[in-house]
């Protein structure tokens, strides 16, 4: 179909969304991602029965933690589709992209840039 989706999105493949842990999601944000979408199979279609349901709960846990630490729970989403449903994937990707553009950059990334910048300034001032 040659459908395009926003180039800002990077895909990380996992065997099943049941493999995705809260920690994986948090690590993404720690390393500067602005948002995470967990794309699982349709509910009821999991090859391992309940993998996508587990993922759903973990997404909710991650949302709660991100909310508590000021990053915002809306930056994590879960969507469900089948492997043949490319148009739906594109729609989710575009919606997520728009939502993240709206939310702005991950405050952790901004904070880290500021920290580096100030470290750089200090270093520059210390140079003879």
């Amino acid at each position: 179909m040659r459908l395009g989706y926003p180039s800002s999105i990077r895909i990380i493949r996992v065997p099943c969304t049941g493999k995705v842990d809260v920690l994986h999601i948090l690590r993404c944000f720690e390393r500067g991602a602005d948002g995470v979408t967990v794309v699982g199979c349709r509910e009821g279609d999991c090859h391992y029965q309940t993998g996508n349901f587990r993922a759903k709960k973990r997404v909710q846990q991650a949302q709660a933690i991100l909310e508590q630490i000021g990053i915002g729970g809306t930056r994590v989403r879960m969507c469900n589709l089948s492997s043949s449903d490319a148009p739906l994937f594109v729609r989710f990707a575009q919606e997520m992209h728009a939502a993240i553009m709206d939310a702005g950059p991950n405050p952790v990334r901004t904070a880290r840039m500021l920290q580096r910048a100030s470290a750089g300034t200090t270093a520059a001032l210390q140079q003879p």
Binding site: V22, L23, E30, Q68, G70, L114, Q115
Partner: peptide, 21 residues
């Protein structure tokens, strides 16, 4: 171990946002 990872990650992100090393 898992909860340690989650808490540590959350704390790191919080401290960063507070501008604390």
């Amino acid at each position: 171990k898992k909860e340690v990872g989650v808490l540590a990650s959350a704390l790191r992100m919080l401290f960063l946002q507070q501008g604390r090393e």
